[in-house]
Amino acid sequence: MRYPIRYIYVVFSLVILCGCYNDELNKVQIKDSNEKKQSNDVISVKEFEVNDAPFKQSKTPEEAVIHQVKYKLSNKKVVQAKKKNVLYSVTYGNQGVTAVKVPSCTVTDYFLFSTDPDNDRKEKRYWAINGVLDVTIGEMEKDSKGLALPFKEFVSGKFSIDDNDKKVIWAIANEKHVITIGKFPIPPLDHKLNGKPQLQFPLENFSPKDPKRDSILNMGKHYLFLGTKGNPILYYREGDSLIWISGNVSEKELKKLAASLPKVSSSSFPFSKE
C-alpha cells in the first residue's frame, strides 16, 4: 500500500463489507479442492533479478551468476549466492551451465544458469546470463522411468538453451543433489580419416580441459574428469550429439546413471520410458 491514508480507506471499506458478508456467502461458490495451509516459517524464492556486473566480476560463468543475480525471498529479504552456494559449473566451448542452490531458503530451490560470452562488449569473455531454469523442490516424482538415479524421489526440469531444441539441458534434483544432463550438437565424425585426428574436431573443449582427453571423441567411449568444484563430468559422443552429465554426486553414481541413459534419438531422452 503506497499511502498510509489507504489504511483508513481499507478500514472503512471493511466495516461496510462485513455487514454484507453473511447474506452473500451462500451464493454458488467454487471451492478449492486442495486446502493445504502454508506455514509462516516457509521461506522460498519469489523473484529473481539479473543485472549487469563489472567485467572483473564476470570473467567466468561462476562469477557471472554470483555477481549478476539477486533473489528476493518470501520474507522480503534479498540475497545473492556466494561461492559456496555454487554447486558446480560445466563449460563447453562458449556455453556455460552453472547450478546454484539459493541461500537462506527453507524450500530448496536450485537455479541453473545458461551463460555465454558477450559479443556486444569490448571486453573479452564477459560472461552474461541468457537462460535460467528454476527447479524448486516441492512434490517429488517417484518413477525414475528407467533412469538409474542415486536417489529415489526427485524433481525434474528441462531447458532448451537454443530455439531449435538442439542444445538442451535436463536437471534432476532432490533436497541434497542436483544432476544436470546436457545434449549439445557437435560436428560429425569423418570416417574417411579412418581414425586419424580430424582437423575439424575438436572445435571446442571443456573448460577446464579434460587432461586425458583423446584427440578424437570416439563413438561409444565414455570419458570422465573432475570440474572446478570437484564435480565429476562424464561425457560421450552419440551421433552428432555430445552428451555430458555432471552433478554434486560421486563418479560411481554418475557412471551408473550414464549406463542407464537411452539412445539420444529416443523421444523420452534422458528417460527410457515416457
Binding site: I30, S33, D120, G131, I137
Partner: peptide, 25 residues
C-alpha cells in the same frame, strides 16, 4: 516466479512446477 531482466541481453526463463494443485467445482 517473477524474473527481472535489468541486464542487456534477452533471457529465457523456465520455471518448473513442483506441486500438484487442483482447481475444481
Amino acid at each position: 516466479k517473477v524474473g527481472y531482466n535489468y541486464g542487456h541481453k534477452t533471457m529465457k526463463f523456465a520455471s518448473t512446477i513442483t506441486t500438484t494443485k487442483t482447481q475444481g467445482t
